[in-house]
């Protein structure tokens, strides 16, 4: 029933839910995607920080080998938390494992090596 002064026109318009259902019926099934150039897609996103987060196969050197317990340091310590791409993480852990070194020891070894190389 319309209102006395014609201000309430709710009944004139079709129910909104029906409009939505009708609109939905116009959509067909998802079409197959055109092939994309994955290397180009990945390269375009990398500068914005979009890199692979999926685990890579770990090297045998990083699996199943013990690392000795850390020694009590002789000087004050600072905490360092870093995030690495999985590939670099795996390399670092494999490096530490290969020397049965703790991470701080492995980092020191790498720094010592780099400094020695730079000095030569």
């Amino acid at each position: 029933m319309s209102s006395k002064f014609g201000l309430d026109d709710h009944e004139e318009a079709p129910p909104v839910a029906d409009n939505l259902s009708a609109a939905l019926s116009t959509f067909g099934a998802v079409r197959p995607r055109a092939p994309i150039d994955l290397p180009a897609v990945d390269a375009a996103a990398e500068p914005h920080g979009f890199v692979s987060r999926e685990a890579t196969i770990t090297t045998s050197a990083s699996v199943g080998r013990g690392r000795r317990r850390r020694a009590v340091p002789a000087e004050p310590v600072r905490h360092l938390a870093i995030r690495l791409p999985v590939s670099q993480y795996d390399r670092f852990v494999a490096f530490a494992d290969s020397f049965k070194a703790t991470y701080p020891e492995a980092l020191k070894k790498l720094l010592d090596g780099a400094e020695a190389e730079a000095g030569n």
Partner: peptide, 19 residues
């Protein structure tokens, strides 16, 4: 083969997101 496919992506910048 549905009419609508949503991809709910992870809260990080990753290759999966960009692809």
């Amino acid at each position: 083969n549905q009419q609508f496919v949503f991809i709910d992506l992870e809260g990080t910048a990753s290759v999966l997101v960009s692809r």
